[in-house]
Design a protein around this nucleic acid. Structure first.
Lengths: 281, 281
DNA sequence: GTCGTCGATACCCACCCGGTATCGCAGCTG
DNA sequence: CAGCTGCGATACCGGGTGGGTATCGACGAC
C-alpha cells in the first residue's frame, strides 16, 4: 500500500464525497476514483459503498480510516524528524508542545534548568489547542509534551509525573461566593447567573448550554472578569490573574497532574536529558 | 514520502550495501540507487555516506531508519487489519500472541472464560519467539499479547496486570541442591557443572559463555533433565514438568508479572471484552 | 598494473498517474 | 414524464517515472 493511495482514501473517507476530496487533494475527480478502486482491488476489500448520490464507509473502510491516519502520521513523523536531524546547528534540537496558558511556571523552570545543563540543545516551545498535544507527538511536529491528567489522554505515550495540584474556581472580584474559604463542584454548578463555559469538541462544534462559547484561556479570563461565566482550573492559574478575578479552592474537584510525555520509541539523547532534568525539578 | 521509497531506503540502511538490498527487494541495483537519491533530493537530506567500497548511515539516516521502520509497520498494520475487518465470518476475530511455552495455564483459562461470554468471537493464538510480541502488535499481525514484566518491554502499549508469580530454579531430579527448601540467585549461579543457558540476542547471535545455546523451552527442559544446564523461570512452568525435573524457589529473583497488552489506539469491541474478561479472572 | 567490487550514470521501454471529455444513474422540478 | 442536475465511473490521451540492461569511474587487493 502506497502512502499516496492511503492519503487519497483518507480524504474520500473524511469527505464522503469524491469531488470535494479531489479538490482538497488538488487533483481531478476521475484519477481519484480510479486510485481508490485500485486500492480496493489490491486489498481485495470493499472500502466504500457508492450510490449515485454519495458515498458511505464499510466496516473495513472505517478500520482503514482509523489505522490509515495513524500510519500517515507515522510517515509524516519520520519525514519531519529526519529533516530536523539533518538541520544545521542553531535550529531547535527539541520541540516541546503544551496547551496555551497551562503550566507556564513549571515550563519556565524546566527550560531554565535544562538550559543550564551541559550539552543542552535549543528547545522550541509550541503552544497548541486543547488536547492536540498527542497529535503533535504522533506526527513528529513535537518531540515532547506537557499533558494534564485526567484531562489529556496519555495512552500510547511514555510519561513522568511532574506536579500534582488541586483545582480552584475562578470568580469575578466582589462575587458573594468569594467570601467562602472553599467550595464543592456542586456549589459551583449551582451559582446563579454564572453558567460554565462551553469548550469546542474535537470536531470544532460546541455543546448546547447556557454558558458562553470559549476556545482559549484569555477569552475565558476576560469573560470571568466580566461576570459572564466561571471555571474550575488548576490552582497554578493564579499566577496569571489580575485582581479582577478571585479564586476559591474546590475541594472535591479531581486534582490535576502535569506530566511530561514523549513517544515511546524515542531514542534521542537531548530528550532523555530534558526528561531527567524535568523529573529532578 | 512514499512507502516504496521508505522500504527501499530501509533495505539499503539495513544491508549497508546497494547490491544486496536490491536483491532482497527483488529489483536491480541501478533503480534502487536512483530511488534512494531521489528520496534524499526530496527530503533535502543526505541519508547515506557512499564510498566506492560501501555505504554508511548519516545521523539523519539513522533517524529515518528508526522512524521509517515504525512507519512501515504502521502501514502494514493498517493493511492487515483492514483485510481482517473485511474477512467473512468464521475467520479469527482476534489474534493473541504470546511467547511459546509461557503462561499456558492462564491463557487456557482466559480463552475458556472468554469463549463463554455472549458475543465472543474466534481467537487465534500465535506463538512467537522471545520479545517478539511487541512487533506483532505494531505491524498488525496480532491484536493483543501476553507479556512478562520485567523481561518484555511494555512501552507504547496499554496493559493490564493479570498475574504475579515468583521464580523457581529448574534442576535435574536427584541433584543435591534439590534438597534445599529455597535458594538465592547467587547460589544458582555458583552451582558447579550447571552453567546457565545462552539465549539468542535480538540479532540472532549468541553471547559467549560456558552454557549450551538454546532457543526454545522444550530444548531447555530437555537440557535441564539431562543435567547440562539450569534455568530460573516463573513458577507456573511447574505444571509442564515431568518428574525428571525438580524446582526450588529462588527467593531473591524478581517476581514476574504476566500482563495483557494491546496497541493504545485499539477501538474494537471484541478486544475490549477480552480484556475485561482477562482482568476478571 | 590488473582485476574485482561497488555505486553512479546512460539509455530505453512500458506502465501508470493525472488530465479532459463523456457516460449512466438517480433525484428533483415543473 | 421530460429535462435538469449532481455524482461517480469510464474512455482515452500524454508525459513522467519506475524498472530493466549496459557501462562507467573509483578504489582496494593481489
Amino acid at each position: 500500500m502506497e502512502t499516496r493511495e492511503l492519503r487519497y482514501f483518507v480524504a474520500v473517507a473524511e469527505e464522503l464525497h469524491f469531488g470535494r476530496a479531489a479538490r482538497r487533494l488538488g487533483i481531478a475527480q476521475p484519477p481519484l476514483s480510479r486510485a481508490v478502486q485500485q486500492l480496493e482491488r489490491r486489498l481485495g476489500v470493499t472500502l466504500l459503498e457508492r450510490t449515485s448520490r454519495g458515498v458511505a464507509l464499510t466496516d473495513a473502510g472505517s478500520v482503514l480510516l482509523q489505522e490509515g491516519r495513524a500510519a500517515l502520521d507515522a510517515v509524516e513523523a519520520a519525514e519531519r524528524r529526519t529533516r530536523r536531524a539533518a538541520a544545521p546547528a542553531g535550529s531547535p534540537g527539541l520541540v516541546l508542545v503544551t496547551k496555551a496558558g497551562a503550566s507556564t511556571e513549571l515550563l519556565a523552570k524546566l527550560l531554565d534548568a535544562y538550559a543550564a545543563e551541559p550539552g543542552a540543545v535549543d528547545v522550541d516551545v509550541v503552544l497548541c489547542g486543547i488536547g492536540e498535544q498527542e497529535r503533535y507527538l504522533r506526527d513528529g511536529r513535537a518531540d515532547v509534551a506537557f499533558l494534564h491528567r485526567p484531562f489529556d489522554s496519555t495512552i500510547g505515550l511514555d510519561t513522568e509525573e511532574l506536579l500534582t495540584e488541586g483545582q480552584v474556581v475562578l470568580l469575578p472580584a466582589g462575587h458573594p461566593m468569594t467570601a467562602r474559604p472553599h467550595l464543592c463542584v456542586d456549589d459551583v454548578a449551582a451559582i446563579p447567573g454564572l453558567p460554565m463555559p462551553r469548550w469546542p469538541r474535537d470536531d470544532g462544534s460546541y455543546p448546547d448550554g447556557p454558558g458562553p462559547e470559549v476556545h482559549d484561556n484569555t477569552q475565558l479570563l476576560q469573560l470571568v472578569a466580566l461576570g459572564r461565566t466561571t471555571a474550575i482550573l488548576p490552582e497554578s492559574v493564579r499566577t496569571h490573574l489580575h485582581d479582577d478575578i478571585v479564586t476559591v479552592p474546590v475541594l472535591d474537584a479531581p486534582s490535576v497532574t502535569t506530566v511530561i510525555a514523549w513517544p515511546p520509541h524515542s531514542r534521542s539523547l537531548p530528550l532523555a536529558q530534558l526528561i531527567r532534568t524535568a523529573t529532578r525539578l
